[in-house]
């Protein structure tokens, strides 16, 4: 599908910042001639899927953008089958190529490889669908409080559809207490990290090269003293040192774009570099001078992670 054929783009707002990121990106790529529609639906799967299906039928967009959250990851492919169309998952970029075609870039093999994806037969009634993880696109248009990024240019015209299934107090509407044949029996809040890495300006990330749990805890203490957030890689999480899953960065984890990111003992498998591509400045510390992380870093230090962490703790006293 050519970019010029796109007249209307539908974005799902699940109540977290990703919808604003998707809107900013879409506007940057497609400009003011395109119509933007945002469906604001409750975070519960059943309602959001039904409402998206209904909205796609009513609005006939050529392109649908959905944040790749746990909810979005179920809605997007389901819509793909219902509308007999293609879904590009976990895009790291959306653009128009030299031939004017809509092009999605997606990671494979843990981000080691990036591939182009096209949905050639997409059109109104069978829209191209793409999911993007929160944090991949750093620019954000705040949907409800006015537009806070003037570098976007003139503000896009956005129509917001607010599903009246949303109860005023935020409680779950009766009709959404099922997921197909299953009944929602209980909701329990998850144990989350003290500071959210999504908004941190400084992130210290520990990888398998930290070596042991003690060094991980030193990194946590260091992050705390510097007013930053501690994060981990998949390998460090699996090592059982007590890292919290919602601080895991990578293609199977979260994407972040802090001002400063320092990686300790991370080998830099590409999935990790996919997760921090948007960071301001990247510093990597690793004993392996051939670590892939270095190629994706602004500054590198071939040192033992623990030694640098100890030195930092020492120097900030």
């Amino acid at each position: 599908m050519k970019a010029e054929d796109i007249n209307k783009i539908l974005i799902l707002d699940q109540g977290d910042p990703v919808a604003g990121q998707l809107l900013a990106k879409a506007y940057a790529v497609f400009g003011a001639e395109t119509e933007y529609v945002v469906l604001k639906a409750h975070k519960t799967h059943n309602i959001a899927l039904r409402m998206m299906e209904q909205t796609v039928r009513e609005e006939n967009p050529e392109l649908v953008l959905i944040g790749a959250t746990a909810l979005g990851e179920e809605i997007a492919p389901a819509l793909g089958v219902r509308f007999r169309t293609g879904v590009a998952a976990h895009c790291v970029d959306i653009k128009v190529n030299d031939e004017g075609r809509l092009t999605f870039l997606i990671p494979a093999f843990g981000g080691r490889v990036i591939g182009e994806i096209f949905v050639p037969d997409a059109k109104a009634g069978h829209p191209a669908i793409a999911t993007v993880k929160p944090g991949i696109f750093q620019q954000r248009i705040s949907l409800y409080d006015g537009f806070d990024r003037t570098d976007i240019g003139s503000a896009p015209s956005v129509r917001i559809i607010d599903v009246d299934a949303l109860a005023a107090d935020g409680s779950i509407p009766e009709g959404s207490k099922t997921q197909g044949a299953f009944r929602l029996a209980e909701i329990t809040p998850r144990q989350r990290a003290a500071s959210d890495i999504a908004s941190a300006e400084l992130i210290l990330c520990g990888g398998y090269g930290l070596g042991n749990e003690e060094t991980w805890h030193k990194l946590e203490a260091l992050a705390d003293k510097l007013n930053g957030a501690a994060a981990c890689t998949r390998a460090a999480l699996d090592a059982g040192w007590g890292c919290m899953e919602d601080t895991m960065i990578g293609t199977s984890g979260r994407a972040v774009s802090p001002e400063i990111y320092v990686g300790f003992g991370i080998s830099g498998a590409a999935h990790h570099t996919c997760g921090i591509a948007g960071a301001g400045r990247i510093i990597s510390i690793n004993t392996d001078k051939d670590a892939e992380a270095f190629a994706a870093s602004d500054y590198k230090g071939v040192f033992d992670a623990e030694q640098v962490i100890d030195a930092l703790l020492d120097q900030i006293k």
Binding site: G80, R84, T85, G86, V87, A88, T103, P107, A108, G111, R112, V113, I114, G115, E116, I117, F118, V119, P120, D121, A122, H126, V262, A270, T273, C274, A277, I282, I283, I285, F294, A295, A296, S297, D298, Y299, K300, G301, V302, F303, D304, Q307, V308, D310, A311, L312, D314, Q315
Partner: peptide, 30 residues
């Protein structure tokens, strides 16, 4: 309905400067 295009290894385009000689210098630099 989706068709693949080219595959490539991601470019990162960062400088990878190596300004520090010891862990202590690295800490100070950071």
């Amino acid at each position: 309905p989706t068709k693949p295009g080219r595959l490539f290894e991601p470019e990162t385009g960062r400088a990878a400067e190596e300004p520090w000689q010891t862990p202590e210098e690295a800490a100070a630099g950071i």
